[in-house]
Each structure stands twice: as structure tokens, then as C-alpha cells.
Design a protein around this nucleic acid. Structure first.
Lengths: 222, 222
DNA sequence: AACCCTAGTTATTGAGTAATAACTTACTTC
DNA sequence: GAAGTAAGTTATTACTCAATAACTAGGGTT
């Protein structure tokens, strides 16, 4: 295993794929803050320690970079859902997902904020079809777990969007979700449960938040 | 009543207040599309038929213009809620608000989209306190009607945020709300009803959508 | 050692954009 | 009708930013 060589400026030299991954990771944080129009490619490049023009050899243009970043964000959410629902079904699985998503408020609010950024960026006709695709993918995943129960689907996504807004404007989470938390901070009862209980085995969910695997580099040794 | 005189370029001459109103109305549409960073002051100025520098005599800077526009958007929503709940209380009032908000999807989706734009713009520390104030104002209004019932509050705002996203990425409204519509297109049953029924008089709501008065010019003769 | 491929750089351009300054035109009022 | 005030303009600045072009350097392979 050759030691990674470094360029003149001290930057470690990587394969294009590795660099792309690094860029996307940094871009999540920046785009989550500034959105598509409020984030410069120079800022992202600076964050990963690479020159601004080099970004355009890794990505066709800014939109491609943005889309790759948003896709990564959605994938991480999907992976979180997949992880926390492993071995669960029906009510318990839904409960676990809702719980996990709310926990992202504390653990990785960038994932929530970049979703909102994606939605507003969807005004661009070039971006919109891709962003709808990401949404649909998430919808499919959840739909499979809820059994397409329309009430549960609506409530689940509605509450998710409220989480996103809470993250964006930094509202205290307890304002809208606090009453469903027990003293250990875990979600114990909610309307999703109410509806979900009808479609699967009941009981108190054993939902715990798993640190989501990174979908950009499936087998990466960080 | 003197006929409005026109300037050399054919633009009608207005009082500063009237012009500010006109600017804000145009700005709603533009900011709803492009957001704070994606909308140029020149575009807005062009839309109202005024030179770009003149905007800065009507508003301190771009942020002030944006905030005035967002405030206007929130006020219109509040006014819609006030109008449709007139004479109603409890379950019926909540139902009417939920109904009215969903109807904005078809009637004035800019009001929903500019909300999302406000939320993402709240990353700016100068804007955030104002935007939270707008949110809190809306929260108070709804809270007064729900009697602060936490479950209803959460469900109501959650569904509202889902509406916003549906407007932004142009999802078919039926996907998440369609099952609660009867053949005449009106909302007939939803979870909000379920929860709301507990806090007020039951029955089928007679909610209808009122065209909201314009809060920018309270007594304007358009 | 000559070649080639890939990672990366510097320099530059051209367009867009918020904001300022200084000027002009119209209405009002004495 | 002169003077003041309020509405609006043109011209300009200082800056940011995406994207291109052209160049450099490292590491294999033959």
C-alpha cells in the first residue's frame, strides 16, 4: 500500500472518486447552509483543500455537484431508515423511522436542512425531475413499510417536513414533538403510532438510532 | 382626485407607499421562485416598472425587501385563517383552516413556496429572528384556535409543511391528501379532524375558502 | 528514458449584481 | 411663480462567481 503522495500545496493526492466523495461530504454542510444559489464553488473547494476550477473536472457543472450532494443526503436518510427498521415491521418499523428522523435534528441536522434546500431548488426545471426522483425513492421505501396506508404515509411525511423546518429555523424540538417524549428522550407515543398500530403488530417500539452508513463510499475505510 | 401622472418612461407615478406595495406584490412571485439569493433586485424592479436603484430608496437593502415580502406572505396566510374561521370554533375552525391552506396549493401556491424560501433563508443570522417571529405569530393564531392541543398543533403544522413541499416540487396533491377529498374536491375527513374533534364541537365542517384580503394595503382600492 | 494517464494548479474571462452618487422631473404650497 | 419636496432616473462602482484554457507534476508501464 503506497503512502498517499502530496501535492505541492500540501494537499493529499487522491483518486478522482475519493476526491468526489470528499467534495460531496463538504458540500452537504455548505449547501445545507446556503442552498444552491447561496453557496459558491470556491467555498466548497476551499473546504476540501482543492482549487475551485478542479471541481469542474470532478463534476460537469454546479448543478451536477448540487444534485450529487442532495442525492447523497437522501441516500443517507434512506439508509438510516433501512438500518433502524431491520428486523421490524408494521407499527414498530414506522415508529423506529419516525424516531430516527427526529433524532437527526440533534445528530445531523444538515441532512434535514439540505432537504429543504433541495425542495426550493426544484424550481429550476433542470433540477426538478431529479429531486422528484429522490423524493419518490424515499416515498417508495416508506410505502413498502407502511403498506401504503395513506393516513400513515401522509402523517409520516408531514411530520418529517415539520422536522425539516424545525431544523431550518431552529425551533425548540419540544414545541411540536416534546410531548411525545418520555424522560429518557425517546419517542413513546404519537399519532403515527395510532394509525400505524392498525397495520401491524402493536407494542412499544424498541427503536434506536443507528449511525447511518455512508452511501457515498459503501465500503470506505475512513 | 388627480389622475396619476406618468413619468417619462411611461411608468405611472405613485406615492412611495403605493410603490412599496406594488414592489412587495411582485417580489412575492419572484422570491417564491428564486429565493433570496436566486432573485435579483433588477428582476423585481423590472417587474414593477421601476429602476433597480430606486428599490433601495424604498427599502434599506435587499434583506429588508425580502423580509417585507415574507412578512406579507405570512400575513396573507394569517388573514386567510382568520377569514375562514370567522364564526367557527374548535373542530370546525381547525378543519376550515386545514382546508383553506390546502386550497392555496391551487389558488396561490406562491404563498406556500415563499414560506419554504423563508425557512431556508433563516440560516442568515440577520434574517432568522424575523422569520421566527413570523412563525411564532402564525403559531399563536393557530394555538388560540386549537386551544394549544399539542397533538392538533403538531399535526396541523406538519401537514402545512407537507403542503409547502408539495407546492415546491409540484407533487400531485392527491398523493398525500387525495384520500381525504370527496368527489366535490373538498376535504371531508382527516387526522386533524380526529384529534380536533376532541377539543371542540363535532360535525362536518362547512369550511370554504375565502379570497384573503391583502394585508399590505388594508383599505386599498385596487 | 520516453510515454501516458490522471490529479491537480494558476491565470483569466465574462457575466451578473447589490448598492451609491448625482442628477431630473413632477406635484404642492405659499 | 418660486421654492421645496418627493418620485424617479442614469451612470457607475466594487465585487462575486461559474466556467474555460492552458499548464504542471506524479507514478506507473514498457
Amino acid at each position: 500500500m503506497a503512502a498517499p503522495s502530496s501535492t505541492r500545496a500540501g494537499t493529499v493526492r487522491m483518486s478522482a472518486d475519493e476526491r468526489r466523495t470528499a467534495v460531496i461530504r463538504a458540500a452537504v454542510a455548505e449547501f445545507a447552509k446556503g442552498g444552491f444559489n447561496g453557496t459558491s464553488t470556491a467555498t466548497i473547494a476551499g473546504l476540501v483543500g482543492v482549487s475551485q476550477p478542479y471541481l469542474f473536472r470532478l463534476f460537469d457543472d454546479k448543478k451536477a455537484l448540487f444534485l450529487a450532494t442532495v442525492e447523497y443526503g437522501f441516500q443517507r436518510v434512506e439508509q438510516t431508515f433501512s438500518t433502524v427498521t431491520e428486523g421490524l415491521q408494521g407499527h414498530e418499523a414506522i415508529h423506529a423511522m419516525a424516531h430516527a428522523y427526529q433524532d437527526l435534528l440533534d445528530e445531523d441536522s444538515d441532512l434535514l436542512r439540505i432537504q429543504l434546500q433541495a425542495y426550493v431548488a426544484a424550481h429550476d426545471p433542470e433540477l426538478k425531475p431529479h429531486i422528484r426522483k429522490f423524493w419518490d425513492s424515499l416515498d417508495s421505501l416508506v410505502r413498502g413499510i407502511t403498506g401504503s396506508d395513506p393516513e400513515v404515509m401522509t402523517t409520516f411525511f408531514a411530520r418529517g417536513m415539520l422536522c425539516n423546518v424545525i431544523a431550518a429555523i431552529d425551533l425548540p424540538r419540544e414545541r411540536y414533538f416534546g410531548d411525545f417524549l418520555s424522560e429518557d428522550g425517546r419517542l413513546v407515543e404519537c399519532e403515527i403510532c395510532e394509525a400505524a398500530r392498525q397495520i401491524g403488530p402493536g407494542g412499544t417500539a424498541a427503536g434506536s438510532t443507528a449511525a447511518p452508513e455512508d452511501p457515498v463510499t459503501p465500503g470506505a475505510t475512513d
